[in-house]
Design a protein around this nucleic acid. Sequence first.
DNA 1: CAGTGAGCGAGCTTCCGCTTGACTT
Length: 911
Amino acid sequence: MANAPRRLVIVESPTKATMLTRFLGSGYVVESSRGHIRDLPTNASEVPAKYKGLPWARLGVDVEDDFAPLYVVSADKKPVIRKLKELLKDVDELYLATDEDREGEAIAWHLLAELKPKVPVKRMVFHEITPEAIAAAVANPRELDIDLVDAQETRRILDRLYGYEVSPVLWKKVMPKLSAGRVQSVATRLVVDRERERMAFTSASYWDLLATLDAGAAATPRKFDARLTGLNDWKVARGADFDSDGKLISDAFVVDEKCAGDLAEALKQARFAVDSVEAKPFTRRPAAPFRTTTLQQEAGRKLGFTTDRTMRVAQELYESGYITYMRTDSVSLSEQAITAARKQARALYGDDYVPASPRVYASKVKNAQEAHEAIRPAGDSFRTPAQAKLVGDQARLYELIWQRTVASQMTDARGQAVSVKIAAELAQRLRAGAEMATVDIHRAVFSASGRTITFPGFLKAYADVADDEQGEQAKLPQLAPDQHLDLSEIATESHQTKPPARYTEPTLIAKLEELEIGRPSTYASIIRTITARDYVYKKGTALVPTWLAFAVTRLLVEHFPRLVDYQFTAALEDKLDEIAGGDAQRLQVLNDFFYGAPGHEREGLHDMATDLGDIDARAVSTFPIGDPEAGINVRVGRYGTYVEDAEANRANVPEDMAPDELTLEVAKQLLATPAGEERELGTDPATGHPIVARTGRYGPYVTEVLEDDESLPKSKRPKPRTASLFSSMQLDTVTLDDALKLLSLPRLVGTDDEGVEITAQNGRYGPYIKRGNDSRTLPSEESLFTVTLEQAKELLAAPRTRGRRAAAAPLAELGDDPATGKPLVIKDGRFGPYITDGEYNVTVPKSQPINEVSLEVAADLIAAKRAKGPAPAKKARRTSAKSSPSKATKASGSASTSKKTPKPASGASSA
DNA sequence: CAGTGAGCGAGCTTCCGCTTGACTT
């Protein structure tokens, strides 16, 4: 007993660890890493002190040394590492059982690098948790796949370089805090491009007829509907016959309103008879079991869940053991699951509903990594929804998953598709069409179709949305050619072609999956990111782009075209596969991406993100509305989006107005309406001008309304007096008296001995007095009205550096810097407490309590600052792209910027 | 996007993929 070897098995998910513990029994300790355990530092606070100040610290990747990454264990991962190290002390072997995909392999490698185990290490993989699978995994360990780890690291570094080099371009050219990335920027572009299609779309209108026909008392159903589809021997135009410009693209006949009305009238006298009946058998196969994206789509369509909600509920079901892992790109079921599904289908519906051999589904996802199974009920016999005894969202989502899984192992549905054509001969020819092309119509053709299910097969268990809609199709009676029909009702219907629909959360994610962008674990967060950045917002379920998204997308498309190319990620995936297969070098991939391929240095990210002179910030944010000749633009500004005409008149664009709603007419209307809310306070008795209170860019203010003399150019028109409210006043309570008082500013305080005027006024930094070019801040807003000439002269006589600054004593005096002899003090500044020696300033780190800052620490901080130099010198740009991939690696330091740690195989053979 | 005078210490924002954080007497 005591001699039996003890093993630590590390998996990624705690839930999986619990399940595994049950199967492995004594001798095994199973613990989880909870995902990745370390990563590149996200910001300066995560960069270890010894790397601070290095030019590449911001990136966490030393782009000058073969893109060596700097990895740190973030604060929330430290306890995990501590726990694992603790457990490692008492075992004889370590099994790294992270997922068998790129990320999982990398997690295993990071674990190895961080835990530095002294015991033998094995890499173990399994895709399903069954006794057999686990036994096989234990019996067949392998070594860590360093090429696969390399592929992951390349992906990680490239994403970092993209995100952290391009985002700052947006800060400079569009707005601070914006972001760009390989995934989010394409997601945003998709939504923007779709909106552009909608804006360019021209609708076409056409008409048709809907006839209700009576097949006689013996028929069931007796009445059915048929739609006009032909006239004489021409096809009648439908939506598909028009293109996005509203132009007819076929030789179909377009029925207009008059024609439709005339036809309806004429057809009341016509003879209707069945022309042809066509019946075709059809079969339908069940859909594959769920993977993450299809679950999100179906939960959205059938249950109305957002992707976030779907994933949250699925996580709950997974953690409580009801379903298998929910972040997967695989549609394959384990043997165990196939057996369970077939057994359940047979028990519930009978032998006829289960095919002779199991159905096998292959993944259609191109970059699928298949580390997990499809999403299905857990276990080797499924709990039916009733047995599961779940409630609420969990019950609904479980039922959906259960149905889809069981149905996926059931037989095809079979049925008959019937399509009927009915001809109506007009008693009199009808003349239709406009002057140029009039035609005679003598015959109208109507069509009706219906589907009947003869054997439901899998539909017994699971009907998808398409089936539901077809279920609503009216049944057709038995009909025979030449059978006479009576017209019961006839109605004209008008139709318009519709622009392409906006993306919804699930359809956007499905599109990203098709483009191989993003992973199951990130689909829901992609939506969160582009929403949080205000690139898109939801209108109902539709994703609508903002004008900000238009501006950002335009900048990227015009200046970083390669990075937002829809094929970029797919091509990258190919490269990563080559690296994983040992057929490509990561260094070359990164070099080409960052510095440009040899001879194409200009196309490297580094040059593109550095030379910003070409990017015209104003142009990027300006979009003409309608005809550019109209001179009306929509512009994305710091304070929101507005429209502007040639005379610089401006009006805000309401936040909930979708870009495709902002037509030229709407823009003109916006410009014609006075902006924003305002409150009329009354009339200035002195001038007769109305006085209003408004909220502006700098907060609430009052102003007088002058009649606009349209004949003068804007710059020549008289400017109305304006004044900010005092902080004691509010927009909805300010009175006319207050306003008049405010508008009386600036106040002439008096004239000094030299005859120079001293005035009191309110400004950007608050109240102040002014004498020529000299000024002093006043203590309060009220003092604008009370300050006397004497007080003003006194203020002006004092040096301006007095006042606040002199009053602000240092928070602490630390003593003299041993290096320079200068006194070090802590002062309170706009950005918090900082240490200064009079020349250099350093903000006190947040983690450091001010009263505990020692002289030594302060001196070190100042010294570090001094070492950086007085002004951050412009980074010298590399002139030669690296072309020698085989450079000596950096001396392997403790911070593990070097990747060449020995393989775990070192101890794999433990005999 | 209402207009208006100074002078002081900057430094941060951001990526994509893995995963679930937790307590206290």
